[in-house]
Nucleic acid binder design. Structure first.
Lengths: 139, 139
DNA sequence: GCTTATCCTACTATTTAAATAGGGTAATAT
DNA sequence: ATATTACCCTATTTAAATAGTAGGATAAGC
């Protein structure tokens, strides 16, 4: 299951992608439109800003904007920032690799090949889908 | 990420699939071979037994056996028993459907189509892979 | 009737998720 | 200048899920 953090993050990005480029959108506006706790959303947006998906403007008339065209923000990138590894087990993760602590030997693990297949399949979808696609609602 | 419960469950099934059919294997043997906490494994096997994936025999010479040929146990079935929904959001789950409580309208959700695509892709893999495939290590 | 091994319930500890609180800081308008 | 707006940041809390533990009940076999 997807965490709410990731779900909210994707919804927020999609919402921003639907707005006119270049004008800052306030957190409260996104929060209301997407039915997300304001404070929770605040922390999510901050995280995405720190990872260069968003830029922000303070003060009156401030808010958040996409840091780049929505077509250039893949779901894979968002997923990794908010959710973490795309793979189902750490030992087949490309970006978050870690040995599984119950496996003696990775090559001997009966799940290894399946986990790689699943990872590659999901990766393909996530990398070939952008926030712009979500905004168009024509995935 | 896959829970340890599911991971251990799949490993246990695979281990059983590799044994000679018809002779009961003790929990302790699986636990040692797969490096899984005995008591935790016990509860996992019990759950799979209750869901008709395993049969057991008590007393001396007892243990667990697959309830059907390994070729007939799909990963999808195991996943749903131990992990729950295969989909990433409840509102696109086939077996565990539930409305997402942040969405006003499902058809209007920007993630909906993507989530369905991901679900179908994973489902395809999980339904077309059996415990026998894992045991062969030729997924 | 003793041993073996599963069955079953309940409990606990740890971690993660999902917020919430509350003030700090910067930009803008007047 | 100063009041207001809106993001920035840290810490705390609550609830749930995960992972495992304890201890005995039950059934089968010798």
């Amino acid at each position: 299951m997807l965490s709410r953090k990731t779900k909210y993050g994707l919804k927020a990005l999609t919402f921003l992608a639907k707005q006119e480029m270049g004008i800052p959108i306030q957190i409260s506006k996104i929060s209301e439109a997407e039915n997300i706790s304001l404070k929770f959303l605040e922390s999510i947006l901050l995280m995405m800003k720190k990872n260069d998906l968003l830029i922000s403007k303070k003060g009156k008339g401030g808010g958040y904007m996409l840091a780049k065209p929505a077509t250039e923000i893949s779901i894979a990138v968002v997923y990794r920032i908010l959710e973490g590894p795309i793979s189902l087990v750490p030992c087949v993760s490309l970006k978050f690799y870690k040995k599984c602590d119950d496996c003696h030997d990775e090559d001997d693990c009966s799940l290894h090949d399946l986990m790689i297949r699943v990872r590659d399949n999901n990766l393909k979808i996530y990398e070939n889908t952008s926030v712009a696609d979500l905004a168009k609602n024509e995935v």
